[in-house]
Simulated assay, not measured.
Amino acid sequence: MPTLRWHRPLMLLAVAMASLTVFAIGATIADSRTLTGLPIWAKVVKFALSVLIYSVTWAWLIDQFTRWRRIAWWAGTMAAIGLGLELAIIVTQVVRGTTSHFNTTTPLNSALWNAMAISIIVVWAATVVASVALLFNPTPDRARNAAIRFGAGLSLVGAALGFLMVRPTSAQLDSGSGIRGAHTVGLTDGGPGLPFLGWSTAGGDLRIPHFIGMHAAQLLPLLVIVLELSARRISATRSADVRSALVKTAAAVYAAVIALLTWQALRGQSVIHPDALTLAAGGIILAAATAAAIAVLVRRPSDGRTTTPSARRSLEVTR
């Protein structure tokens, strides 16, 4: 299979995650146990899917590198090992019927959580190295460059937000609890939440900006694909300048949304119950995004160049 040659360790991990996702979905149906208010295997499904997406994305990117290729290959390999270890621990704890994150209730649980924490740091550091390598491997298209680079940068920010969750809460410190850290702000984990996702509907939840941020690496490149497809019908998006400017605008808006969601979560506020201050901030972001997008679309491109494959071939023929 050609795609398995992109970056073999990451692609093998992707295959394992696809298999684990199918197994965990079946286990969710067959196993009636719950943990922190959700089906006990739901966490495995979510993490396996997320790792699957990460693995395929970076395997494809690293395969495109012409510079820093060896360094990026090793970074991808370290990320694959770290993610594989993390999922192995999560599955182990699910089988044991207990939580994996923040769990220091017994020496074994503490050792597994510490191993997981180290693996997460390794994955984040490896992704930093691979993201730096991206800067030395530009594509011929400016919009794609912007999407890939900003997407990688924002995904690192989103991943780093996970470190906010490992801080023990004041209640945990006061009680001497063996759980040291929490997803939820203002409440204990396991309260009412959104179906499957489990994101708190009663308090702040740091998993939301964490999740949204991490997947910028997929969503911003997806925007480029949409813009390139729209160029067949919308003349404005045929310009490389316009597409690049729209992607940069989207990246700025994306960063603002991550900041807003983080701020909202840290104030202990549920994402589905925003207060007036949160709504006002969201309105400002929406208005600024709309104004910026309109300004880009109505502005005449400076050079009128296009970079869609069909347009590029036409220009080459006429020249």
Rank of each mutant, 00 (worst) to 15 (best):
A126W: 09
I25E: 02
G181D: 12
V51G: 01
V15R: 02
L206Q: 06
A59H: 05
A171G: 07
S119F: 03
T3R: 06
A291D: 12
R67L: 11
G176T: 09
I62C: 06
A236Q: 10
H210Y: 10
L20A: 15
A256W: 00
T201Q: 07
G213D: 02
L279Q: 09
L4W: 09
A117F: 12
T184K: 02
V247K: 01
F47S: 00
L61W: 02
A182V: 02
L266T: 13
A24V: 04
A259S: 09
R149M: 09
S239H: 03
G190E: 06
L134N: 03
A250C: 04
A59F: 07
L35N: 07
G186W: 13
T169N: 03
A152C: 13
A125T: 10
A30H: 14
W60L: 04
P140A: 13
A276C: 04
T249F: 05
F196D: 09
I208L: 15
H273L: 09
R312C: 06
L61T: 03
V15H: 03
A259H: 04
G191F: 11
F136W: 14
P309A: 15
A295C: 08
L38T: 15
A27R: 14
L134F: 04
P2E: 13
R267K: 06
A59Q: 02
A79K: 07
T139W: 14
L261R: 00
L277S: 13
H101C: 09
T104M: 09
D141R: 12
R233N: 03
R33P: 05
V166P: 04
L279R: 15
G176P: 08
M11F: 04
P274G: 08
W74D: 05
A27S: 15
I62W: 10
A288H: 07
L229I: 05
V247F: 00
R233C: 05
A240T: 11
Y254I: 01
T308D: 06
L315T: 12
V185N: 05
S239L: 06
S19K: 00
S170V: 10
G176F: 11
Q172C: 10
L227F: 05
K46I: 14
S314C: 03
G162L: 13
V317W: 11
T262W: 09
I25R: 01
